[in-house]
Amino acid sequence: MADGVVTSIADKVIDSMFVVANKEIDYMWNCKQHVQNFKSEVQKLKDMKGRIQQKIELAKDKGDNLVHGVEDWVSAVDAEILKAEEFVTEEGNAKKTCFGIELCGNWSTLHRYGKKATHTAPLTELQEHGKPYESCVSVDTPAPGILDCYQNKNLIDILTYNSALDNIIKAINDNSKQVIGIYGVGGVGKTTLTKEIALTVKNMFADVTFTTISKKFDVEKIKKDTENARKRIINGDKILIILDDVWEELNLDELCIPCGIQHMNCKILLTSRSKHVCENMNAQSVICVNSLPLEEAWILFKHVVGDKLETDTDLTSVARDVAKECGGLPLVIDVIGKTLKNKDVDATIKTVYNRLKLSYDFLESEAQWCFLQCSLFPEDEDRQELLKFKEKIMK
C-alpha cells in the first residue's frame, strides 16, 4: 500500500515536471510566434489609444470636461507602450546578432525573449479598461453664463450703491423672506447691483442662476435658463434665482419655479422699474435703488474716465458739468464717461437714446405727451402749470 502511495506521488511530480518542462521548451521553440503575438497586442493598444486620444482632443476643443480616469488611463498606456517598445527593440537587436532569431543557437536567448513575450496581461488589461472610453471620454460642460463672466466693479466708495447692496443681502439672509424685489428707474444700476450680489452671496447657495426677462419675455426661454436650478430646488439644494428686468407680474407657477412654504430653499431676487410689479409678485422685501447724489456721481465719473481726466485740460474744465447732467444714473455716467474717454460720441448718443426710449415707450399715452411737453420748458423752470393742465385733460 505504501508503495502505491509513493508511486502515485511520483507520477504526479513527474507530470508536473513534464508540464513545466514543456512550457519552458515552448518559450524557446515558439519564440518567434510569441513575439509576434506580443507585437499584435501592442498594436491593438496603440490603435485604441489613438481612437480615444482623438475623442479627448475633440472634447477639449469643445471645452467639455473629461470623465474621471481617462487621462490616467492614457498615461498608463503610454508607460506600458514605452516598456513594450523597449522590449521589441531589444528583441530585434538580438535577432540581428543571431542572423535571425529562429536560427539562433543561444537557447538561453530564445527562452528569455519567448517567455517575456508571453507577458501580455498588462496590455490586454489596459485594452479592457479602455473599452468604456471608446464610447465616452467627456461630459457636456455648460458655456459660461452672465455671472461667470462678470467682473467686480469695486465701487466701495459709492455709499448709495453699497447701502442698497447691504439692504438686499440682509433680506436674502432673512429665512422668512423668499422673494426680494429691487426697483428703480432705468439706468440706475439694478442689473449691476444684482450681479454684485450674486458674487457676494454665491458661497451661501448651491447655485445662483441669472436670467433676463425684458419687456417682451419668452416663457420657454426662462424655463430653459432656470431648468437646472428648478431641478436642484426639488432635490433640496439651496438656490438663488435672479429674474432681471421684469416689466410685469410673472406667474411663477407658469414658469415652473418651485417656491412657497414647501420650497423655502429657493430664493428669488427680481429687478423692475416698477415698485408695483415687485409688490404684485408678493415680494416680502421691496428695496428702492436711488440715483446717485452729485458727489457720488462725480466719483463714479472719475472711475470711468480714468487718468485722462487729470491730463486733458479741455475735458477737466467741463467734466463736472457733464457728470451733473447724467442725472446720477450709473448707466448714463458709464456711457458718457467712456465716450469722453474714447471720443465715440455717435455711439454714445445712440446707446443712451435707446435706453431712454424704452422707458418712454412703456409710459401711458398721456404720460408720453406730458414728457414731450416738458422738453419745451427751459431748464429748472417750474412745470406745475403743465402738471395741472395734464390733470384736467385726464379727467
Rank of each mutant, 00 (worst) to 15 (best):
A121I: 04
I81R: 03
Q127H: 04
E125Q: 08
S108T: 12
I25P: 02
E71F: 01
G130I: 04
E128S: 08
M17Y: 11
V70Y: 01
C104Q: 05
G4I: 14
V13F: 13
K23A: 08
S8M: 10
F18K: 09
V67P: 00
Q33T: 10
W73Y: 08
N65Y: 03
G130D: 01
K39D: 03
F18M: 04
E90G: 10
V6E: 11
I14T: 10
D61W: 03
S16V: 06
A59H: 00
D15N: 10
D47Q: 07
E86C: 04
E71H: 04
V6I: 15
D72Q: 06
V67L: 12
Q53M: 14
L58F: 10
Q36W: 05
I52Q: 00
D78C: 08
G92H: 07
S16C: 11
K44M: 07
K96Y: 11
V5F: 14
V77K: 00
Y113E: 02
E85M: 09
Q43E: 15
G92S: 12
A59Y: 01
V74N: 08
G50S: 11
Q127N: 11
Y133K: 01
N65E: 13
C104T: 11
K95R: 08
K46W: 03
E71W: 04
H111V: 02
T120P: 09
K95H: 07
R112D: 08
H34N: 15
L82D: 14
E128I: 07
T124V: 15
K60N: 10
L103M: 13
S16H: 09
W29P: 01
G100A: 08
G69T: 05
E125N: 12
P132Q: 02
W107K: 07
A21T: 11
V6G: 01
S135K: 15
V74M: 15
Y27P: 05
D61P: 00
K95G: 14
E71C: 02
D64R: 00
Q54P: 06
K95N: 14
Y113Q: 03
E90A: 07
C98H: 13
T89N: 09
T7C: 14
G63T: 02
I52R: 01
K116D: 06
S135N: 15
D11G: 06
L82K: 11
G92L: 07
G69N: 02
V88F: 01
W73C: 07
S16E: 12
L66K: 02
G105I: 10
E80H: 03
K49T: 13
G50Y: 09
S40A: 12
H111R: 10
A76H: 08
L126P: 00
A121R: 05
K62R: 09
G100K: 03
A79G: 12
Y27S: 05
D72G: 01
F87C: 08
N37C: 12
K44D: 10
E71S: 09
Y27E: 10
L123W: 02
D11L: 13
I25K: 11
W73A: 02
I52N: 00
Q36M: 07
Q33S: 11
G4V: 07
G105R: 06
E90V: 03
E71G: 01
L123V: 06
S40E: 13
K49D: 13
Q53L: 14
Q54K: 14
N106M: 05
G105V: 12
E57V: 15
K55N: 09
T97K: 13
E102T: 11
K83I: 04
Q43P: 01
K116S: 10
V77Y: 03
K115M: 07
K55P: 00
